[in-house]
């Protein structure tokens, strides 16, 4: 049992203890004994591919779904017993744009403010930075907004009742690069206002923007730490290799016994060796040349979160 579970109810913003959730009468496991804790005021990232269980976790924490086993608390309230209190205090932005397309920007915001018994004016300071960007279009129907603006409006609507914890489920999926960057700047500003933020994303490059991240895969948490620490946890030296024929090189490298793992990474192949040996690189160059490759280049690189994630993932599936 994790340590905090014994200390009882604390004001940690989100506590998740041994949470398990299955679908289809237990045949599909969405969450498998997940435990973690998010401190108040933290910007916490949940990183994992589609189908890893991120949305399920968010839906349990926002009281939309009940878990099969385990407990979870938000703001010290239990998600099952005190679900009503949680609904008053959390903000939730689902992955899919889900505002009223036939209401205008202002009407949507107004509606969600009144649902929580508040007004736009009362909490305007919270959404001001974001709302100012979409204010020129406040009389436009939400359905007619561009993707980035929809996202901003959805964030405003999730914020307007001054939540203590904000759940953002893949907020940047399908949003252009510039808007994504803007979005993360906004999140950091919200964090400064003391709001705890849980954000999920399938994009590894966004992971470094969080204070702490949890890598999640097929319902299991692989690792929880700061992005730096997670990268530092990468066990081997990492190399990037390329030849003029990448697909064939990938097959050849996989066939080579000295290579522990290799995968395509942009225009390079990332690879790690089984043993740390100074002869590794030259040996591999020779091997590739023998296989008839041209334009061979092998160099050491610093691992990224994605490398660590792939590393953890392969360990998970093939225990050595």
């Amino acid at each position: 049992m994790p340590l905090w579970a014994k200390t009882g109810k604390t004001m940690g913003a989100v506590t998740v203890t041994n949470l398990t959730k299955t679908y289809e009468k237990g045949s599909v496991t969405a969450l498998d004994d997940v435990s973690f804790r998010v401190e108040a005021g933290e910007l916490f990232g949940l990183i994992g591919p589609d189908g890893a269980g991120k949305s399920t976790l968010f839906r349990i924490l926002t009281t939309l779904l009940t878990a099969d086993r385990g407990t979870a608390g938000v703001d010290g309230f239990d998600v099952v017993k005190d679900y009503r209190k949680i609904r008053n205090t959390v903000g939730y932005m689902p992955g899919r744009f889900s505002l009223y397309q036939d209401l205008t920007v202002e009407e949507n915001l107004n509606f969600f403010a009144t649902l929580f018994g508040t007004t736009i004016r009362e909490n305007y300071h919270l959404v001001k930075d974001i709302y100012e960007q979409i204010e020129p279009f406040k009389d436009r129907r939400a359905g007619k907004l561009s993707g980035g603006m929809k996202q901003k409006l959805a964030l405003c609507c999730a914020l307007i009742h001054k939540p203590t914890v904000l759940f953002l489920d893949e907020p940047t999926t399908g949003v252009d690069v510039v808007s994504r960057r803007e979005f993360w700047t906004m999140l950091n500003r919200l964090k400064e206002q003391g709001i705890t933020i849980l954000v999920s994303t399938p994009y590894m490059d966004e992971a470094v923007l969080c204070e702490r991240i949890a890598l999640i895969q097929t319902g299991r948490i692989l690792s929880i730490d700061t992005p730096d620490a997670i990268v530092r946890g990468y066990p081997d030296r990492l190399f990037a290799a390329r030849t003029d024929d990448l697909p064939r090189a990938l097959a050849d490298l996989r066939a080579n016994p000295s290579v522990r793992s290799t995968y395509a990474f942009g225009e390079y192949l990332h690879l790690a060796f089984r043993q740390n040996d100074t002869e590794n690189v030259s040996g591999l160059s020779r091997y590739l040349a023998e296989k008839g490759h041209s334009g061979i280049e092998i160099k050491p690189v610093t691992p990224t979160i994605e490398d660590r994630f792939i590393d953890l993932m392969t360990r998970e599936t093939t225990p050595s």
Binding site: T62, T63, L64, R84, R87, N88, V90, Y92, P94, R96, F97, S98, L99, Y100, Q101, F112, L115, F116, G117, C157
Partner: peptide
Amino acid sequence: EIGTIEQINVSPI
């Protein structure tokens, strides 16, 4: 279908 019911459901309504 639009998903707005989720937003309504997480509210105290």
